[in-house]
Design a protein around this nucleic acid. Structure first.
Length: 310
DNA sequence: AATCCGGGGGT
DNA sequence: ACCCCAGGATT
């Protein structure tokens, strides 16, 4: 059952109206009064800034992104500025945001924007999707937030809010591009500006109120319309998410140690220095080989490694 | 559809 | 200890 299907129910005057339009209006009003003051919400924030922020926010929490974003935009205020430096500089400046190939991909996207789009971040979702490292979420987020275009934007927060408020389930089903966009389209206001606001508003609600664990339902603007609440907060019955392997002792940890060493120095790192980072030679070699294959590290001489020079 | 890919903070 | 985080690419 979706919000539209429940819309025939007459509700008390002070209750949240449970039409799609009513839900969107309530969430957007709440957002207007409770939105966090984030850099990418400042007036005049550039489309390039939005794109950089969205890359950084791919699996890295807001609070860790903010300081790096400021550094990046001061150093590389346009795509052309980033495109003009070696990719290794982007990887170094990425610091410990995690998943450093995002830095490589962001650099590649900057080059593509410079070469194919005259240095202007494209408006068109398909043009954005064609850029390295930009997928379904980021393409729509840039089009909607940087340029105000009307597109459904679906991130993990949005998926969770819809799963609860509309579908009455504790957690969203595994991501499905078509289903997720369809569900969000049902809620998205027709009017362009209202749509852009709502895209941000529902994400914010999921980020600060309708959180994955310990949701703050008492502070939720649509608690009276929430299907999950109405159903008595049933537990999630769908397929279990795969338990991610523990970080300690993983290849990812070893890759991270090597990358930290490469970032820390401005001269090539020797094989001996890399050896000192991890005792297991097989795993160490596998990690280094992976970094070389990914282009995150390069072999500048026999047994000498560095960040990508260009 | 499943796996891989960092790192840090909340519970 | 375990979970989660404004995901995307690859197989």
């Amino acid at each position: 059952m979706n919000a539209t299907a429940r819309s025939t129910t007459t509700v008390a005057a002070d209750a949240v109206e449970t039409t799609a339009a009513g839900l969107a209006a309530e969430i957007s009003t709440w957002f207007g009064e409770n939105a966090r003051d984030l850099p990418w919400r400042r007036a005049g924030f550039s489309a390039w800034g939005t794109l950089v922020s969205e890359f950084m926010l791919q699996q890295t929490p807001v609070n860790r992104v903010i300081p790096r974003l400021a550094e990046w935009l001061e150093r590389w205020p346009t795509p052309g500025d980033l495109a003009s430096v070696p990719p290794g500089e982007a990887v170094r400046a990425w610091a410990s945001l995690g998943y450093p190939r995002r830095a490589l991909w962001l650099h590649a996207a900057a080059v593509e924007i410079t070469e194919r789009h005259g240095g202007v971040v494209p408006h068109d979702v398909d043009d954005l999707l064609a850029l390295t490292g930009i997928g379904d979420y980021t393409a729509r987020a840039v089009a909607a937030f940087a340029y105000g275009h009307r597109h459904p934007v679906v991130d993990t927060n949005t998926r969770r809010v819809i799963a609860r408020a509309v579908a009455g389930q504790a957690e969203p089903a595994p991501p499905s591009r078509r289903r997720d966009l369809e569900a969000m389209s049902q809620l998205l206001p027709e009017e362009t500006v209202a749509a852009a606001v709502f895209n941000a508003a529902i994400m914010e609600l999921g980020a600060v109120v309708c959180t994955s664990r310990s949701p703050r339902c008492e502070a939720c603007p649509i608690r009276d319309a929430c299907a999950w609440r109405a159903a008595g907060y049933p537990e999630y019955a769908g397929p279990k998410k795969a338990v991610q392997k523990k970080f300690e002792g993983s290849d990812r940890q070893v890759r991270g140690l090597i990358m930290a060493e490469l970032r820390a120095t401005h001269h090539p790192v020797t094989a001996a220095e890399i050896e000192s980072l991890w005792p297991d030679a097989v795993q160490r070699d596998r990690a280094l080989a992976g970094l070389l294959a990914d282009g995150l590290a390069v072999c500048v001489d026999t047994g000498m490694y560095a960040l990508s020079q260009g």
